[in-house]
Design a binder for these strands. Structure first.
Lengths: 104, 104
DNA sequence: GAATCACATAAGTCCATGCTTATTTGTTTC
DNA sequence: GAAACAAATAAGCATGGACTTATGTGATTC
């Protein structure tokens, strides 16, 4: 069940920080470490967890490995959340605004 | 940071099962245990975690305590997810369908 | 008010997980 | 092909978290 992997991956604050950083633009593992106090192996392990959860994908570029957000993981969360849409009727308007925003 | 509590709460499959069950309709802790192989204290502890995360709220009714989904927690996830909406342009159509659905 | 019931809390155990240091793998460069 | 560099993997450790049994608390019933 990948849903479980996703929530477990996001349960760690360091991994959410990494994910947020990647959301601002793809980069390699070394660049990701800048500004985050974390060892190289720890970063590598976190990225492996995020990748396995489908939240992030990698692409080797020479001796660097470029990481970027994988929309698949986000889509899965959105699908999970949609199951409970009955519980936020008051937010429908906000969602509509969001949609309009998406359309530009 | 309650965001952290939410993801940690949802990282446990048993708690997600409990949450899903509550989403189908509020009920007390004993009723919740039916169909889930879990001890009474374990259920109580899980509910405390969900409650602390803002995913569930309680209301004492006599010697029973009724639990139900708290929309606040879901709204927080939605807000978190919205930050990354740039990453699922292909899902806009799906969202529109969802919205239409919400309007009946 | 004693017994019973629904639930919460306490305390201890065990396993998962996030970290560390050390090493390995893959790639480039000289 | 040896050195240098980016990243992954291995192995060990320490903490967190999900469970257990035992007990406490609040409410109802007789």
């Amino acid at each position: 069940m990948i849903e479980n992997e996703i929530f477990k991956a996001l349960a760690d604050p360091t991994r959410r920080t990494i994910f947020e950083k990647l959301a601002a633009g793809g980069m390699n593992a070394s660049a990701l470490r800048e500004g985050i106090d974390i060892s190289q192996p720890a970063m590598s392990q976190h990225l492996a967890v995020l990748r396995s959860a489908g939240l992030v994908r990698e692409e080797r570029q020479g001796r660097f490995v470029n990481y970027e957000v994988d929309p698949e993981g986000l889509a899965l969360i959105a699908r999970w959340l949609a199951k409970y849409r009955a519980y936020w009727p008051a937010r429908i308007e906000a969602l509509k605004v969001l949609l309009k925003d998406m359309d530009q």
